[in-house]
Design a protein around this nucleic acid. Structure first.
Lengths: 208, 208
DNA sequence: AGGCACGCTAAGCGACCGCTCACCTTCGAC
DNA sequence: GTCGAAGGTGAGCGGTCGCTTAGCGTGCCT
């Protein structure tokens, strides 16, 4: 599902699907500005300035400031959904698939925490239609994770008294990484991913 | 530590310490508005209007809009710290104290989720000095929870390979309740508190 | 009764916001 | 060489923002 392109090294170019080049530069500038200051505190002049353009240039590629947020949110949620879908569709046991999902989901929220911050915490600034679309994507993410947990309960691997509640908690835990993760901090995204995969294994009552 | 007053029923009046009456009405209006729309999207006219006053009335009781946010954030963090301090200083085993702390912390974030949302997610709108003060309070909350977990590891009740990391995760989990909790939803604050206390017991490897 | 501190309002100031418009430059097609 | 489309700029419009100021009503002290 993801249209992001992979470099020879295997690393993702997050915004490669956005064209032309000027539109991508503006969008990247908007992500940085929204993540630092929040959507409402960011001015269109600031976005254009970061992209090295005049304020008016923004409106050649985007109809409004809100359209920028919508595009960012849409692409980010597509990516997040793609990550959990890939893990959920894997071939391992429920425990392995849940660990994979948490590890890669957390790694993305930590590594791309500027993007994730905008995607996860600026939802309310969207208009009703755009918000409804994004909420639909979130429900799909929720359904994927709940599916894995249910599978584990069915096989007896997991011990989960409250599947919907635990699903919400697991996702909440992963998403909130975007809020507190600090590049200057002591942990790499990989390390946080591993730690969280272990914590979630415990939450669902998985015994070796 | 908390200066909030208790009614005969035992319920807290969250803003009882704010006087005079007009200043409290303005502050409550600001909490609602900030929680709904965010700090930057809220206008001083909106706050005054919700409190049934003219726009200028706000500036009789508060120097700036930011001072309102600062007061809200300060009082809220004092309350949150008070909650975990009380639980941490209890007499039970580490497992009991951790469950108490999580249960009451989560209950507050769910029950007072409008306040908690402002307190936890609008920190970046504060100026450097105010932000530094609030971050200091957060570190104290973190230290209390880490202390309980360390106690449990010391007595052998808990199995926690990474104490600081687990502490961050536990607090992140609890705090994020303020973001997703919905009064119209199926769970009461008490139920979420009980669920989360159980999940955290699992995270620290506590066996009955 | 007089004076005055206090809480509040109506009006509005200067700044800055999202966004538009008239115009300019570049460049490939023919 | 000419021309049109595409992508960019400088200036600025209408509106709203945070905040201020001048003045009004009310109640307490003397």
């Amino acid at each position: 599902m993801s249209t992001a392109q992979e470099t020879p090294g295997g690393e993702m170019q997050p915004w490669a699907e956005v064209t032309p080049d000027a539109a991508r530069r503006l969008l990247i500038a908007a992500v940085e500005a929204f993540a630092e200051r929040g959507y409402h505190a960011t001015t269109t002049r600031d976005i254009a300035g970061r992209a090295g353009m005049s304020p008016a240039a923004l409106y050649i590629h985007y109809k409004t400031k809100e359209e920028l947020l919508h595009r960012i949110s849409r692409i980010g949620h597509d990516k997040a959904l793609d990550i959990v879908r890939t893990a959920a569709a894997g071939e391992g046991t429920p425990a392995e698939r849940l660990s994979d999902a948490v590890r890669s989901f957390v790694r993305w929220h930590a590594g791309q925490h500027t993007t994730a911050r905008v995607v996860q915490y600026e939802l309310e600034a969207l208009g009703p239609d755009a918000r409804a679309e994004i909420i639909g994507l979130r429900r799909q993410v929720d359904a994927e994770v709940r599916g894995i947990i249910q599978d584990g309960v069915a096989t007896g691997e997991f011990d989960v008294p409250d599947v919907p509640g635990t699903t919400v908690a697991v996702l909440s835990l992963c998403i909130d990484v975007a809020r507190w993760f600090n590049v200057e901090g002591p942990r790499t995204p990989d390390e946080v991913g591993a730690l969280y995969a272990d914590l979630v294994r415990r939450m669902v009552g998985f015994k070796e």
